[in-house]
Amino acid sequence: MLRVRGLTVGYGGEPVLDGIDLDLESGHFASLIGPSGSGKTSILRVVTNLLQPEHGAIELDVNTREIGFLFQDDALLPWRTVRQNVTLGLRIRGAASGDADTQAEHWLTRLGLEGFGDRYPGQLSGGQRKRVAIAQVLALRPKLLLMDEPFASLDAIVRTRITQELLDWVEREHLTVLLVTHDLEEAIGVSDEVHVLSHGPRATIRARHSIDIPRPRNVLQVRRHPDFGPLLQTLWDELADEPPEKGTAT
């Protein structure tokens, strides 16, 4: 589904990422973890054409319009209602107004926001805004979903609940997902594979781990699986091995 080849990304000085290779098979859920400043977000930004690399190539089996990007911030338009925000991508892609509204209601209902369509983002809680952002992306029925620490700002209970809802959807629809996260437990709990970036600048992928915990998964119960603890320790050791932060944060 996604192949990253020799990706080098810089911001004028020493490259942040240096020669990243990454393969993501269709239907797989992969996580990218690494220290702050290692360029995790930059990889997603290159895949979505928000950032031009110095070297390297991105090969995709899908059209860029079939990629959904869930940002760290919900990034909703404050002057548009919830419904208008959810239909935004659909309208950009030419959906008729009535169809877009119907789909928006469908997704809002699925995500527990029935009756919230006429509210503005400023009237919602952080968790509700995040659900709107998810609805906005999933309404486009992406084949490849990129997520940049999407739940980092939420409290633990809301975060666990939304992660589970999203995971259920991803498993049911066999979506391909690339998740950037700082949370090692989250990475193991939801992923089929975890890629560990070294510290930047000139970060590389220093380790890859397959996670053979069966699906469907429950984000709380998955922690009791016998593979979970040892893998968490391994990832922790790999990141703790890294030298202290000194480079550019992106």
């Binding site: 979505t48 860029t64 338009l77």
Partner: peptide
Amino acid sequence: VDRRLVERIQTLGGGQTVLAREVYIP
């Protein structure tokens, strides 16, 4: 202007016209 909103529109497939209508003019 909030760059996050601009990038949000870009990743949803919007061009300059959509950016003007949805972000810059409001």
